[in-house]
Design a protein around this nucleic acid. Structure first.
Lengths: 245, 245
DNA sequence: GAGAGTGAATAACATACGTTATTGAACTGG
DNA sequence: CCAGTTCAATAACGTATGTTATTCACTCTC
């Protein structure tokens, strides 16, 4: 099952027609990119909505003097900016981290959804509300948490999101981010990211080696990061969804 | 004209029916709150969408040990979390800063919009995309900018947003935030906020006294904050909007 | 109009994190 | 299989910002 469908099914019960429709959307108009290239650039006119079918990407913003902030990570199954085509120009860039496969979703695609797939509409709303909630949590993360808490929190979030998309196995997952990526996302320097990871390692909170992350005791990592998963809204909402159907 | 209508008109050309509808929504089901009280609490089930009719409010999140982060400010005309009723529970709180008047917008209200007011639908999409863009910009602000830049940036943003809602007069505006509020929003300590404001004052970038902010030279304040207004998407989009009408 | 409370200003001191630099290991491509 | 590149690790040192505390100016209230 595709990561997108798998993720959305945690929120909304989809029909097989819904699933088929989403899978078709994810396979048409596919583009592939190598690692570390720009997929969309700040200032461009947005044309389509991007769906990450495979690989990791990120949204980032950059200041004139080169300081760079990763403002979100895109994992397989993530959708970039529902409905952006309303806007005249992009206020951020989207870049690949690994090899990446992107499906472009057109305006017409969304009109088709609105017409005939009400549960998919709900699911996409959900996705975009969670996206906003993640951005708020990052604000809290950067504004209030110490380096250690911040790192632990970020790793927890990624682990939860990967698990939701079916991309973990037991307590481990692929982890292609470099320490420089983590620095750009956490607002810390590369050197301090390194120090912080060492600290997490020596507390046995993580095993991070090569491109694999192992979280031996998720509960303890969550505590270290003051991590509360409520903002990921991972519960399926029975009552309300029935009302919509 | 109400701040909401005034703001949305910058983006989308509204008919008089659209305007009347929005003004009606803003006057029914009105609640008033004193300053510094919670309007919505984290953990509650969201029931309505809140529209700030008058006064200032904020979204905030808090860690168990009391550290508090303001993640956004709500000015008159701002809408809190379009479509939240999909979610089971709030992941943040909303609190008043000044005396505040809130209009509660029901689910039925949004269904009515979807049915008969396509331009309002577009306008509300716009509002919510700008809201998301602001949150990303705050991430950049907290992650990369120095204290001085961060403060200057925040003040620029508030000034622009107030102006969009018709709430500035010339180079000045009401400014009810305390230094403690600014600290919670910027991730700085109160003491450092004070130092930073002094620095902005002595460079003649701001005059901040009582509850009034004056920005004698907006261009210079923008430069000091590395402020690029693109993320506020303040341009009206002729071509695309016509296509929707 | 005394007392209490809040917000702002300032000082002295502490520290978490940034900066610059060097080294070594692991890839990668020709 | 060697030269070039990237990523991680570590060290020495610098600084932007945090912490705690005190004082002052207002405003509110009873």
């Amino acid at each position: 099952m595709s990561p997108l469908v798998r993720k959305l099914e945690q929120f909304v019960r989809l029909s097989s027609a819904d699933r088929a429709f989403l899978n078709r959307a994810a396979s048409e108009r596919l583009r592939k990119f190598g690692p570390r290239v720009d997929i969309v650039r700040e200032g461009e006119r947005p044309k389509d909505v991007q769906l990450v079918v495979a690989g990791w990407a990120c949204r980032y913003k950059q200041l004139e003097d080169g300081r760079r902030q990763v403002v979100s990570f895109f994992l397989p199954g993530d959708i970039c900016d529902l409905n952006v085509f309303i806007l005249r120009e992009m206020d951020h860039s989207i870049g690949s981290i690994t090899d990446v496969a992107i499906a472009d979703l057109s305006r017409e695609f969304f009109e088709e959804i609105s017409g005939g797939y009400p549960r998919v509409v709900t699911a996409l709303w959900w996705e975009s509300l969670v996206d906003a909630a993640i951005q708020r949590e990052w604000t809290l993360n950067l504004g209030q948490r110490t380096a250690l808490e911040r790192m632990a929190h970020l790793l927890c979030e990624l682990f939860f999101r990967l698990r939701l998309a079916g991309l973990t196995s037991g307590d481990s997952c692929d982890f292609p981010l470099t320490q420089a990526d983590l620095a750009d996302a956490s607002g810390l320097s590369k050197v301090h990211v390194n120090r912080t990871l060492q600290e997490l390692r020596s507390a046995n909170l993580i095993v991070l080696k090569g491109k694999t992350l192992v979280v031996p005791d998720l509960r303890r990592l969550m505590d270290a990061g003051l991590f509360n998963a409520n903002y990921l809204h991972m519960e399926r909402e029975g009552r309300q969804l029935d009302a919509i159907e």
